[in-house]
Nucleic acid binder design. Structure first.
Length: 436
DNA sequence: CGACGCTTACG
DNA sequence: GTAAGCGTC
């Protein structure tokens, strides 16, 4: 083949990238393309995205190529670039674009884009191929043996997923050759919205962290991942969100980290649910006729981390400050909004989606519906006692004190229940509702 | 082969 | 309570 365009999206890496690897193996020239779509602003994720793109450009340049950046509608820009390279009435052909590659994704938006791209490719007599790479096991690759297009319950999926055969982990391409004279375009500038040094974007940082964590930390994951104050989770989620890391490579390197691999399986699980139910971010997966309180004041207090329940407020403030929240805190904060304040899960999920560096449709909305009882949980009326959970997972109150400075001088015994102090705590609100 | 019911298991 | 998996008809 002469030239292939690889339209990148949430696969910003060179290692284990099937769409890129196939292009490099099959075509003389490869155009790695990223299109910044102004109709889908990255918001809080824009800084992380900018860093990931800058890093990807460095990696591609080291291999003799480049990252080509355009702005506009990804489908229109891909076609425009293909025609520019292949040459039109004004001549100047630098190659013949024969195919467009993408990494297959699951959200309604992504799938609509893929369908449009496939149509446009056909119209312009180019091939179109969607490759795996966003999940460990491609969505739809394992289905219930009794029929059905996807698994609705996690545990049977986990069993099937573990025994399913996997593709090989692919090396980064040794060389990437661009067509001559192509304008590489200008990547987005760095952005003030990089809330925390913990999350510098890009594959290079991600791989360094992956190696370190697999070597020194994964063994402690099972015992430590629920410890709210300790940094004992991987914090890979933003890197997985943007594809700076390959989930397949992670899963195969973490052979002995069963509990960690299980979390990667949850990610795959929600991706295959989203593929089968693309309205997951708006519609109840399992309608249960629930009614919600339209309580703007309570919602605002929750968003700002002033519900008066310390463990909830700590989590919500970690989200505001860092663009990330500990998994256990995500459970407690979302449970409190949905089950205690009885606010619609969509309002909470949209808030998380806007602020989380790792915010993606499948995981965010899938987990919110799980908590709300409209999702894949087989026990939709599960109850959680946030004070008991706080005592268990933040026994010294270190997590609460870190994010809720008003409570720093409250003794550990009452830290998780400051309303028990006879005079309360100055500057900290009384609880909006009783916690359980 | 598919509908149905039974058993098992479920964050 | 509900889904998966399997055996049976």
């Amino acid at each position: 083949m002469d030239t292939v365009i690889v339209l990148l999206n949430r696969d910003l890496r060179v290692h284990d990238h099937p769409a890129l690897a196939a292009a490099c193996a099959e075509a003389r020239r490869v155009v790695p393309l990223f299109v910044l779509d102004p109709s889908v602003p990255a918001g809080r994720r824009s800084g992380f995205l900018a860093e990931s793109l800058a890093d990807l450009r460095r990696s591609l340049r080291e291999r003799g190529g480049d990252l080509v950046v355009r702005r506009g509608d990804p489908v229109a820009e891909t076609v425009r670039l293909a025609r520019e390279i292949t040459g039109g009435a004004d001549g100047g052909s630098t190659g013949v674009v024969e195919a467009v590659h993408v990494s297959a994704d699951v959200s309604a938006l992504a799938r609509r884009r893929e369908r449009r791209l496939a149509e446009e490719c056909e119209r312009h007599r180019m091939g179109f191929r969607a490759f795996p790479g966003v999940t460990v096991v491609p969505p739809g690759a394992v289905t219930p043996s009794g029929g059905g297009d996807h698994y609705r319950v996690f545990t049977p999926y986990w069993r099937a997923w573990q025994t399913h055969s996997r593709r090989e982990v692919l090396p980064a391409p040794a060389r990437v050759t661009l067509p001559e004279g192509l304008d590489p375009g200008v990547p987005p500038p760095g952005h003030p919205h990089r809330p925390h040094e913990l999350f510098r974007g890009g594959e290079t940082v991600a791989r360094r962290r992956m190696r370190q964590w697999l070597k020194y930390c994964v063994a402690d994951y099972a015992a430590g991942h629920d410890d709210l104050a300790g940094n004992r989770t991987s914090k890979f989620s933003p890197y997985l969100r943007f594809g700076c890391l390959s989930p397949l490579e992670l899963a195969s390197l973490a052979e002995d980290g069963d509990d960690f691999v299980r979390q990667l399986c949850w990610r795959d699980f929600f991706h295959q649910v989203t593929m089968a139910f693309p309205a997951i971010n708006r519609a109840d997966y399992r309608p249960r006729g629930l009614t919600w309180n339209d309580d703007a004041e309570a919602l605002r207090a929750w968003k700002e981390g002033r519900t008066g329940l310390p463990i909830v407020d700590a989590g919500m403030r970690q989200l505001l400050e860092e663009g990330w929240m500990h998994n256990r805190a995500r459970l407690l904060t979302s449970w409190f909004l949905v089950k205690r304040l009885r606010v619609d899960w969509r309002a909470g999920a949209d808030h998380f989606f806007g602020l989380l560096l790792d915010g993606d449709v499948a995981n965010n909305y899938g987990n919110w519906q799980w908590v709300a009882g409209t999702g894949n949980d087989t026990r939709p009326n599960r109850t959680v006692n946030p004070v008991r959970q706080a005592r268990r997972f933040d026994p010294d109150g270190e997590y609460v004190r870190r994010y809720v400075p008003e409570l720093r001088n409250v003794p550990p015994k009452t830290l998780h229940e400051p309303w028990r102090l006879p005079s309360g705590v100055r500057g900290y609100p009384p609880p909006l509702v009783s916690p359980a």
